[in-house]
Amino acid sequence: MADAQKVKEVILAISEIIEEKKLYLTQLDAAIGDGDHGLNMAKGFGAAKEKLESTNPETPSDILKAVGMALISKVGGAAGPLYGTAFLNASKSVAGKTELDLNDYQVMLEAALDGVKIRGKATVGEKTMVDAIEPALEALKKAIAEGSSTREAMDKSVAAAEEGVNYTKTIIAQKGRASYLGERSIGHIDPGAMSSYVILKTIAEKF
């Protein structure tokens, strides 16, 4: 079970790992995009961290909402609205709850994915963050249905997200600046898929 304090710890851990990986994420983006994804994500999660430490929201939903708003206001390019929407949708899906379990996590991930797909008009196979998040959700659902433990379900979800990231290396980008490259985008990992994987992995490790 994860209460507000645990959710806050998870967000702070995400902020830390994104800061660590910002240059790597930016290098991935430089190959096929604007070259600012890692720096923008670090700025956004840095702002989210400051927000949580200065306002101390009381429920998991309030925390996720604060993160979503910080990402929308601070992350440039497409990533801000997409990640912001993901966190805002997740926030709404668990409104009123004081503790979150594995089933709540599935509901949150589903809501987040829906938000990303609607906002980004993206589906699996277009070389976007959806290619990491959707397999992660499907693997999580399957694991829960099979009665897996929380740890097993999280591990299976993260493994599916990693497979999704690797899959983006084999396909042509169909969204954003990367789509201009056509077949030249093959061989490159999508930075949004990678940052999604990093976030999902951190959640799994801390949940």
Score class of each variant (00 low, 15 high):
121 K>A: 07
144 I>W: 06
102 L>A: 04
80 G>K: 01
141 K>E: 13
60 P>R: 12
129 M>L: 14
88 L>I: 14
148 S>N: 14
99 E>N: 11
149 S>N: 00
184 R>Y: 11
71 L>Q: 11
150 T>L: 13
76 G>D: 04
67 V>K: 10
189 I>M: 09
109 L>S: 13
152 E>F: 03
126 E>T: 08
138 E>S: 12
111 A>M: 05
125 G>C: 05
107 V>Q: 15
74 K>Y: 06
170 T>R: 04
86 A>T: 08
170 T>H: 05
118 I>A: 11
80 G>N: 10
144 I>K: 08
108 M>L: 02
168 T>M: 02
78 A>E: 02
99 E>W: 02
140 L>E: 09
146 E>D: 15
169 K>N: 13
164 G>Q: 01
133 I>P: 11
179 S>V: 08
117 K>H: 03
104 D>W: 02
101 D>M: 07
96 G>I: 03
181 L>N: 05
149 S>Q: 02
90 A>Y: 10
94 V>M: 12
167 Y>E: 12
155 D>E: 15
183 E>C: 02
71 L>F: 05
152 E>R: 02
75 V>G: 09
99 E>T: 11
124 V>Y: 13
83 Y>G: 08
106 Q>V: 02
151 R>K: 15
149 S>R: 03
75 V>R: 01
110 E>S: 15
168 T>V: 11
119 R>Y: 06
143 A>V: 13
99 E>F: 02
106 Q>Y: 12
96 G>M: 03
96 G>R: 12
150 T>I: 15
76 G>K: 00
117 K>R: 14
65 K>W: 01
79 A>R: 00
145 A>M: 06
147 G>N: 01
56 N>K: 11
107 V>I: 15
164 G>A: 01
66 A>F: 03
156 K>G: 06
153 A>Q: 08
131 D>H: 09
191 P>E: 00
84 G>E: 01
172 I>V: 15
100 L>A: 06
166 N>A: 14
166 N>R: 15
156 K>H: 07
121 K>P: 03
174 Q>D: 08
138 E>P: 05
113 L>V: 09
58 E>W: 04
131 D>V: 00
80 G>R: 06
70 A>D: 07
178 A>Y: 07
144 I>A: 11
190 D>R: 01
105 Y>T: 12
147 G>C: 08
147 G>P: 02
118 I>M: 04
190 D>A: 04
57 P>K: 02
83 Y>A: 07
192 G>P: 01
75 V>L: 12
64 L>T: 01
115 G>Q: 05
144 I>F: 10
65 K>P: 05
142 K>D: 14
173 A>V: 06
133 I>W: 11
178 A>E: 10
59 T>W: 03
183 E>N: 11
133 I>D: 10
160 A>F: 09
150 T>V: 15
64 L>M: 12
95 A>K: 15
58 E>N: 14
163 E>Q: 14
176 G>T: 00
137 L>C: 01
165 V>I: 04
122 A>C: 01
64 L>D: 11
141 K>M: 02
70 A>L: 12
124 V>N: 07
89 N>D: 08
152 E>V: 13
61 S>N: 07
191 P>T: 00
140 L>N: 00
123 T>K: 11
105 Y>W: 13
190 D>M: 04
134 E>H: 10
151 R>I: 14
56 N>W: 07
163 E>S: 13
157 S>N: 10
180 Y>M: 13
94 V>F: 03
